[in-house]
């Protein structure tokens, strides 16, 4: 099974994309929080969930492609943090967003390129390569800020998180555009097929005369670019730069991808499953927040869900063998 054909029925796609579990989880979580928390179904809170989930979505979409290619990117949270503090510092320096964003975009794309290069050309396994670059980005964020918060962001940026356009919150628009772009890239371009082939059938890709290394590097560059865009939203959300702002967020992204039914090791997955996974993680975090559960404990709950999802996946494979 490859990425599901978009013409098939939605339910069938859910089954094919291994996303039935994530959909059920989302449903159960919504029901639970509706019962146990008064504010959960209020309109401002629902909008809040979508806004907060957008940042996660911007990481989870490229993470899906990376995991499809049998890779992993543990450096994403640290890179987003680095982008956040650099963007904040530069915006304060320049007074306007665009030149600062452009520089951060170049920095993040370069970082992703380096990740891809280390993995493909130096033949270092992705989880160790990106664990190394995680340390590099984390150190970079500490060095840029000297461990302090960067404050005094011009209000112009805040629009990207709290503003509205045509009656809808800006993050919502950004999420729609991001999903559409990734859907087209993955399902309607040759590049998308190449990415999927990276995970399932790298030999065939090379035999077809395609430079597998460059496809792989481009996936990690895309991941860096998405971190730069996410950094604008994050900076607007916390209206500052902070050297630990998004550390660990890669785990939420990996969790969303895993819950959404994309499998590690086989090049199998479905982009819209990731979207459902992102909403499940977003709803879980929001609901637990409303119930006063600390963030670290929320992450533990997500960790248990991920392990459970992978257990089900592993057992199903065992049966199929």
């Amino acid at each position: 099974m490859r990425v599901a054909d978009s013409s098939a029925g939605f339910i069938r796609q859910l089954q094919k994309g291994n996303s039935v579990g994530a959909s059920l989880l989302l449903l159960v979580l919504c029901l639970l929080f509706t019962v146990f928390s008064e504010n959960f179904t209020s309109a401002p809170n629902l909008i809040n969930i979508v806004k907060q989930s957008t940042i996660l979505l911007l990481l989870a979409l490229p993470m899906t492609l990376i995991i499809l290619s049998e890779g992993i990117d543990l450096s994403m949270g640290a890179l987003l943090t680095l982008a956040n503090v650099v963007l904040a510092s530069l915006v304060i320096k320049f007074g306007v967003l665009w030149p600062a964003f452009l520089l951060v975009l170049i920095l993040c794309a370069f970082f992703g390129w380096a990740n891809g290069l280390i993995i493909s050309k130096l033949h270092i396994p992705p989880f160790v390569a990106t664990l190394g670059t995680l340390g590099i980005a984390q150190g970079g964020a500490l060095l840029v800020t000297d461990g302090q918060s960067v404050v005094g962001i011009p209000p112009e940026i805040l629009y990207f998180y709290s503003g509205e356009w045509m009656g809808m919150a800006m993050p919502f628009w950004i999420a729609i555009v991001a999903c559409a772009v990734f859907h087209v890239l993955l399902s309607h371009t040759p590049w998308g097929n190449h990415v999927i082939a990276l995970g399932g059938n790298r030999e065939a890709l090379t035999l077809a005369g395609i430079k597998a290394d460059w496809v792989l590097i481009s996936v990690y560059v895309l991941s860096g670019v998405m971190c730069a865009i996410a950094a604008v939203l994050l900076t607007a959300r916390i209206s500052s730069g902070h050297p630990t702002a998004a550390l660990g967020m890669e785990f939420d992204a990996i969790a969303a991808v895993a819950l959404g039914g994309t499998s590690f090791e086989k090049g199998k997955g479905w982009l819209w499953g990731t979207v459902i996974g992102v909403l499940a993680v977003g709803v879980l975090r929001n609901g637990l927040n409303l119930m006063g559960v600390p963030s670290a404990v929320q992450v533990a709950a997500i960790g248990i869900l991920v392990i459970l999802a992978l257990m089900v996946d592993g057992l199903r494979d065992k049966q199929n063998d």
């Binding site: 992993i72 543990l74 989880f127 660990g248 785990f251 990996i254 895993a258 590690f264 090791e265 600390p294 670290a296 404990v297 929320q298 992450v299 533990a300 709950a301 997500i302 960790g303 248990i304 991920v306 392990i307 992978l310 257990m311 592993g314 057992l315 494979d317 065992k318």
Partner: peptide, 21 residues
Amino acid sequence: LRIPPFIATYGMLWILHGVTY
């Protein structure tokens, strides 16, 4: 359960982190 080592122990990292907290 055949979960890839890096993802199983990475999930465990965050579970332990939360339990400790």
